[in-house]
């Protein structure tokens, strides 16, 4: 068996259990896209092209209210900024791979793959096997995600509208936010951003969202500096 195939098999094995956590998320995303008024075709296109649940769910309210395109793109990019950190951490595992593999790898990089494989992948010396492991895990998650969201996308048609299924998208975002807020500074950041978003909700073109994100970032930064200042004095 080639190193690549060995890696593929290994990668799928590593991710198998964890990929199950994607299923409710994917179904919720599928339902939320339809509940926002996207057609089945549009939902499928968004799912394959964007392939980033948080960016998809977060931009739905903006897409529906016909917010300007730059704001939609900026929101998608901000929601994905955590991946900049992931990709900085993963880069050494890709430095010896050809460009096409790095490009495909960038598309397939999702939270669960980074969290499960991130550190271990860097230890793998064989470049073929290392790529195989990442590709196996990445493709497995992609397939799981697409199939489970298809269930939500198609299933949403049979649910009456007054069930407010769009709220599934908000729940999914909350499920992501709550564990982050175990860290005090993240809670401060989220609360500051949330309160500002409420106060600035009537700014034109929904630009209040971006303004609130900036307030949150600054609040988090200042809070962390104060925390460190207090720690130093003690």
């Amino acid at each position: 068996m080639s190193a690549l195939r060995m890696g593929l098999r290994e990668g799928v094995g590593e991710i198998l259990v964890f990929s199950l956590g994607l299923v409710p998320w994917a179904i919720a995303t599928g339902i939320a896209m339809r509940a926002s008024g996207l057609s089945i075709g549009e939902s499928l296109a968004m799912n394959v092209l964007v392939f980033a649940a948080t960016a998809q769910l977060g931009t739905l309210p903006l897409l529906v209210s016909e917010a300007p395109v730059w704001l939609i793109l900026a929101t998608a990019a901000i929601l994905n900024l955590r991946f900049v950190i992931y990709s900085a951490a993963m880069a050494p595992a890709f430095h010896d791979q050809p460009w096409a593999r790095r490009a495909l790898g960038s598309y397939l990089l999702v939270d669960v793959v980074f969290l499960v494989q991130g550190p271990g992948l860097l230890q793998e010396q064989d470049a073929q096997r290392r790529w195989g492991r990442f590709l196996g895990a990445g493709l497995w998650c992609w397939g799981t995600w697409q199939i489970a969201s298809l269930v939500g996308i198609v299933g949403a048609s049979w649910v009456p509208e007054h069930w407010s299924l769009g709220f599934m998208g908000t729940i999914a975002l909350l499920v992501l936010l709550v564990p982050m807020c175990r860290e005090r500074v993240m809670l401060v950041t989220a609360l500051a951003a949330g309160a500002s978003a409420l106060l600035l909700r009537d700014l034109p073109l929904r630009t209040g969202v971006i303004a609130a994100v900036i307030v949150g970032l600054v609040a988090g930064y200042l809070f962390e500096r104060r925390q460190q200042g207090v720690a130093r004095e003690q």
Binding site: T75, L81, L176, L177, M186, L191, S196, V209, G220, Y221
Partner: peptide, 11 residues
């Protein structure tokens, strides 16, 4: 801080 800020502002 970006994810927490963005999620708070959207939710």
């Amino acid at each position: 801080f970006a994810p927490a800020a963005a999620l708070g502002a959207l939710i």
